[in-house]
C-alpha cells in the first residue's frame, strides 16, 4: 500500500521534472528565437527575408543540403549493403571509419579541406592554375557538409540490414535477379523506413552545420554564406530582427524535417516489414 503510494509519487515527480527540463532546455530556445524575430511584428520580420543576401543564403543552404543528401544516400546505401551483406577483410575498420565524422570536431573537418584545397594546401597551387575554386567557394562548403553528414544514412541502415540477414537476397539471386534488381526490388524496399529516416537526419544536420562550413566558407555574404553563417553575420551587424527571423526559419525547417522523421518512424513500427519476417527466418 505504502510502497505503491511512494511509487506513484516518484513517477509523478519524474514526469514533472522531465517536462520542466524539456521545457527549459528544448522548448524555451525556439520560443525565444521566435519572439525575438517577431519583436517588431510579422511584417518587418518577413521583409528581412527578401534581402538578396538572405535569399542567397537560403538558396545555398538548400543546394548544399540536396547535394549532400543525394551523395550520402548513394554512398550510405552502398556502404551499408557492403558491410551487412558481405564478409571481407577489415570490415570492422570500415565501420569505424564511417563513424569518424561523428567523433571529430567540425572545425577539424573544415580545416582538413583547407589543408588540401587552400592556396597553401597540398593541391592548392594546381587548382589555382586551373582556375578551379574549391576552398572559399560552394564546392568547399559541399565537401564540408558531406563530410559531417556522411555517417547518418549508413548508420541508420546498418543495424536493420544486419538483422535482416542476406537470405532474401540469396533467394532473389538464385531466381536470376541481377545486382541492381536485388538492390532496388529486395534490399531497399525492406529497409525503406530506415533509409527515409537516415535521409531526413542527414537533411536536418546538413541544413544546420556551422563549424565545418564556417572554416571553408570565407564568410562572403551573397556568395558563400549558408543560413547558419548568415545568422551570425546579421547578429554581429546588430540586425537582431533579421538574424532571429532567419534563425526561426532555419529552426522551423529543421523541426519539420525531424517531425517527418518521427511520422515515418511511427509508421515503420506499425508495419514491421512483412517480407523480412517471412523470408528472413525461412
Amino acid at each position: 500500500m505504502n510502497a505503491a503510494g511512494d511509487n506513484s509519487m516518484i513517477r509523478w515527480g519524474l514526469v514533472i521534472a522531465t517536462y520542466l527540463i524539456v521545457g527549459l532546455m528544448l522548448v524555451l530556445p525556439p520560443v525565444v528565437v521566435l519572439s525575438e524575430a517577431l519583436r517588431e511584428g510579422i511584417g518587418p520580420a518577413v521583409a528581412t527575408l527578401a534581402d538578396p543576401d538572405a535569399v542567397s543564403a537560403f538558396r545555398l543552404t538548400l543546394e548544399m543540403t540536396i547535394a549532400s543528401v543525394i551523395f550520402n544516400t548513394i554512398f550510405g546505401v552502398l556502404a551499408a549493403w557492403l558491410i551487412s551483406k558481405y564478409r571481407f577483410p577489415l570490415r570492422g575498420l570500415l565501420v569505424a571509419l564511417i563513424e569518424i565524422p561523428i567523433s571529430i570536431s567540425p572545425v577539424v573537418a573544415g580545416l582538413v579541406w583547407l589543408l588540401l584545397f587552400g592556396t597553401q594546401g597540398w593541391w592548392g597551387t594546381a587548382l589555382e592554375r586551373m582556375h578551379i575554386a574549391v576552398a572559399f567557394a560552394p564546392p568547399g562548403i559541399l565537401l564540408a557538409t558531406i563530410f559531417v553528414t556522411f555517417p547518418y544514412v549508413a548508420r541508420t541502415l546498418l543495424p536493420l540490414m544486419e538483422q535482416q540477414g542476406r537470405d532474401v537476397e540469396e533467394a532473389a539471386m538464385l531466381l536470376g535477379a541481377s545486382f541492381w534488381q536485388i538492390l532496388f526490388y529486395v534490399t531497399l524496399p525492406n529497409a525503406r523506413w530506415a533509409l527515409l529516416s537516415g535521409i531526413l537526419l542527414t537533411t536536418a544536420r546538413a541544413m544546420g552545420e556551422f563549424g565545418a562550413v564556417s572554416v571553408v566558407s570565407g564568410h562572403i555574404p551573397g556568395l558563400t554564406e549558408t543560413m547558419p553563417l548568415h545568422i551570425e553575420t546579421l547578429y554581429n551587424g546588430y540586425q537582431s530582427v533579421a538574424a532571429f527571423t532567419m534563425a526561426a526559419l532555419l529552426a522551423i525547417m529543421a523541426m519539420a524535417t525531424v517531425w517527418l522523421r518521427s511520422v515515418f518512424e511511427a509508421r515503420a513500427l506499425r508495419l514491421p516489414e512483412p517480407d523480412v519476417q517471412e523470408g528472413g527466418r525461412a
Binding site: 587552400g118 592556396t119 597553401q120 589555382e128 576552398a135 572559399f136 567557394a137 570565407g218 562572403i220
Partner: peptide, 20 residues
C-alpha cells in the same frame, strides 16, 4: 562589391588560404 567581415588576423589567414 561584397564585403566579408571577421577578426583582422583571421581574415588575413583566410586570404592566405585562398579566399578570393
Amino acid at each position: 562589391v561584397r564585403t566579408s567581415n571577421g577578426g583582422s588576423g583571421a581574415q588575413a589567414r583566410s586570404v592566405l588560404e585562398g579566399s578570393p
